[in-house]
Design a protein around this nucleic acid. Sequence first.
DNA 1: GATGATTATTAGCCTATGCTAACTTTTTGC
DNA 2: GCAAAAAGTTAGCATAGGCTAATAATCATC
Lengths: 150, 150
Amino acid sequence: MTDDENLESTEAEARAVESRAEAFIGVREARRSEVAEDYVELIAELIHENGEARPVDIAARMGVTAPTVAKTLGRLARDGLITRAKYRSVFLTEEGRALAKECRHRHEIVLRFLLSLGLDPETAERDAEGIEHHVSERTLALFAAFAQRS
Amino acid sequence: MTDDENLESTEAEARAVESRAEAFIGVREARRSEVAEDYVELIAELIHENGEARPVDIAARMGVTAPTVAKTLGRLARDGLITRAKYRSVFLTEEGRALAKECRHRHEIVLRFLLSLGLDPETAERDAEGIEHHVSERTLALFAAFAQRS
DNA sequence: GATGATTATTAGCCTATGCTAACTTTTTGC
DNA sequence: GCAAAAAGTTAGCATAGGCTAATAATCATC
Ligand SMILES: [Mn+2]
Ligand SMILES: [Mn+2]
Ligand SMILES: [Mn+2]
Ligand SMILES: [Mn+2]
């Protein structure tokens, strides 16, 4: 048998394997920002509604304990998305605000898209919360167009 | 001011907070099975195509190193999804096969849905790989119906 | 069947994200 | 303004899921 007939050895096969790997690598990459995205989006909302974002309110809405919030806020501060002072509320940096805006935008589009497909609001909200982190710009554009059209 | 006028203190507010938390808790729950789902789906495919699933092939397609695969396979075995013998290929248990079938089914539907929306195949595959873990049964049914219809 | 290449495992490290328990600070209500 | 309640922090623990370096087993080839 020639080399080309070996399992795995064709150029086409190699490209397929590579492109599959890239998909998974991309998903893992997206996964790394999920928590940060959800937090800044929520923080922006709390600030908008209440004038400030308190850890206790973040914890209640995220469904986690206060120490978990504290640790996550530490990472967000380290990454330049929020500022905070001990025992005080949290605020977004410019970068944090920009990310929050983008996340809210994406969340809105995904949610409206699911609703326009006919999904009930509760399930739509739940699914959007997970899906939003995994839609490319292209997909988002298609979602927006579809929701618009319908 | 009466109690009802307090920020956060209405029944409706409390329910909204609760339901938001449930959405996030659900997403975190889904997140916990993502890796296992991707692995069993891939293992099933490799077995179908090659008769066996070798760690080296899993690693190439997942875009991770061999030790990462080894550790993950340890968890899958612990959770009753695969069986394996040292230095040998991996096989699915009944439970693993059932999960793989379910994942493949979901993956197919999400992918076809994205394609039927007009997304290019590369991006569709990439997005499907992330989205598939966050679609409820209801959403999946709507996706299937839409792809069918179009 | 020796031997070099390939594949698999193990040990050890790291980060993220969750938790509980204990402690500190701030806020609230008399 | 003091005491109790609420909120926030810290320490310490666990698991998942990545990695590299080192080691071990298997396979392929002569
Ligand atoms: Mn989300
Ligand atoms: Mn969101
Ligand atoms: Mn996937
Ligand atoms: Mn998949």
